[in-house]
Simulated scan of single mutants.
Amino acid sequence: MPHHDPDELDSYAVILTQLLPGTWTSELRPHDVRADQHVLTVGVWDMNQVAEALAARPLEHDVILTRDDGRRLFLMDHPHYEDEFLIAAMAPVGVHTEAFRAVREPDGITIPGDPERATEAVITDLLPRYETALAQVNANTARLTSTASRPDTLVMTWTESGELSVSTDHGEVAEILTGNGFVPDTDRHTYLLAGDDTAHQAQCVRAAGTALGVIHVGVTLQNAPHRSAPTTTRVPAPRPPTPNTLRSR
């Protein structure tokens, strides 16, 4: 088994930070062989050769390369060759595990001891796959955040003047309301539907309810407090869908 000097890995990493595009820093991390290997490498975004190398023997040291925009790379000695190294992307932190679902890991690569050739391999091979995976995770995170903040049921309330009033701060819901006749109030969180034409009001409610149902939002109609029952027939609300939930990875 080859002997690996942590100072050599550290020096190699410093050269990479100077050659890679962007502004990078490096951090050498010596490890106690008795430390929990999984905790040390939990962020390594790899299910291929880097993961196999980490599972094969205790990790004595590694280097984390960090770009000023938060991208991180994991660098370690090759377990079998003194003149080669392994480098892999690191997954973003603070992201819901569901955001990684169906996203393929941007598996790491072997790079040579020549820093210039290594840099070229990282730029042309690893970084593009890293960016693709990050974009998918970010898109999933945005979708999950939107779904989590969206109401399961929207309450439409008749006012004393016969208008229907709805309060929401969810952009997609607000867009559906305004697209079906609701007018935003001054605070932009309340939307009103005129009641001077009850037939038109009912038509707008039905259309809005159908569109809201597509995004799994139910509709409930209610009277304002102390308001007598309306003289027109109330529009039945669409059946509320099953509430949205987040599943763990």
Rank of each mutant, 00 (worst) to 15 (best):
M47H: 11
M47L: 13
N48W: 14
N48C: 12
Q49Y: 10
A51Y: 07
A53K: 03
A53H: 01
L54D: 06
A55I: 05
A55E: 13
A56D: 11
A56R: 13
A56Q: 10
A56V: 04
R57N: 01
P58K: 11
P58M: 08
L59C: 11
L59F: 09
D62C: 14
D62P: 04
V63P: 00
V63I: 13
V63F: 03
T66K: 10
T66P: 01
T66F: 09
R67D: 07
R67V: 09
G70Q: 06
G70A: 05
R71I: 14
R72V: 03
L73N: 04
M76Y: 06
M76G: 00
M76H: 04
H78V: 05
P79D: 00
H80Y: 10
Y81F: 15
E82N: 13
F85G: 03
L86R: 02
L86A: 02
A88H: 01
A88P: 02
A88G: 03
A89H: 01
A89M: 01
M90R: 07
P92Y: 07
G94K: 08
H96L: 14
T97M: 15
E98Y: 12
E98M: 11
A99D: 02
R101T: 05
R101F: 07
V103S: 06
V103K: 04
R104K: 11
R104L: 15
E105H: 14
E105R: 15
E105P: 14
P106M: 07
I109H: 02
T110P: 04
T110Y: 09
I111R: 03
P112R: 08
P112Y: 08
G113R: 01
E116R: 15
A118D: 05
A118E: 04
A118N: 07
A118R: 01
T119Y: 03
E120R: 13
E120L: 12
A121C: 06
A121V: 05
V122G: 02
V122L: 05
I123R: 13
L126C: 02
L126S: 06
L127D: 00
L127W: 02
R129S: 09
R129A: 05
R129K: 15
R129H: 12
Y130L: 02
T132M: 12
T132C: 07
T132I: 13
T132V: 14
L134Y: 13
V137Q: 04
V137F: 02
V137E: 01
N138D: 13
T141Y: 07
T141F: 03
T141V: 10
T141D: 08
A142P: 01
R143D: 10
L144A: 10
T145F: 03
T145K: 09
S146H: 04
S146I: 04
A148W: 08
P151F: 06
D152E: 11
D152K: 04
D152H: 12
D152V: 08
